[in-house]
Design a protein around this nucleic acid. Structure first.
Lengths: 97, 97
DNA sequence: GTAATATGCAACCTGGAGGTTGCAACTATG
DNA sequence: CATAGTTGCAACCTCCAGGTTGCATATTAC
């Protein structure tokens, strides 16, 4: 269930899109080492998770990064690290005392 | 390459072991929904990554959590979240301005 | 010694993620 | 309209993590 960014190809897609400009599937394929179909699949996954938005524009389909979930991810990491701090101090207390 | 805690079984193993007491494979299997062999494999993986330590004790093999990598993980999360803060402000600047 | 317990080892099965290929459909351009 | 470019759809392939089963090995209990 590596649902999102565990994959290298997918991560590089997000990295490319984090440039801020909207890219077509063909463009995104150009800089990748896999088939257009593979890219297309990944984009669909990323879109279904909400990390990315795609919209038709003429005969091509332009994708852009959706910053909202990124911000959520930031908050999440913040909360998680806070929990970790607590968990770690508990663990330390348990082990080092 | 879901190397460590992405898996449910493995995560629950760590959770159980975070109780602090050393557990045999049989004990760990008792509370799990999979075979002893599966548990054994998971423990070997966790051991190879350094999250867990196992040592023979008579005819059984007792496993305990190794807190050190957990602490490292905490530090790591801290650093990552810091990087995220920076990345997010850059992203925000890019999008919201 | 013998039986029961706890583990190790090895072969095998399975589902799904990541890729590819081939073809059909739509759009722009001349 | 014909043609080239961009995408969608579907079938197929391969690899491997997670599991299972069966048997061998060690250790304790009797």
């Amino acid at each position: 269930m590596c649902a999102a960014l565990g994959d290298e190809t997918r991560l590089s897609l997000v990295a490319t899109l984090s440039g801020g400009e909207r890219r077509s599937i063909a463009e995104l394929t150009a800089t990748a080492r896999v088939t257009r179909q593979a890219i297309s699949k990944h984009l669909r996954v990323l879109e279904s998770v909400g990390l990315v938005r795609g919209a038709r524009a003429g005969r091509e389909r332009l994708f852009e990064l959706d910053p909202a979930p990124m911000r959520e991810l930031g908050d999440y990491l913040g909360r998680v690290s806070a929990q970790w701090d607590q968990a770690l101090s508990r663990l330390k207390a348990l082990v080092e005392d």
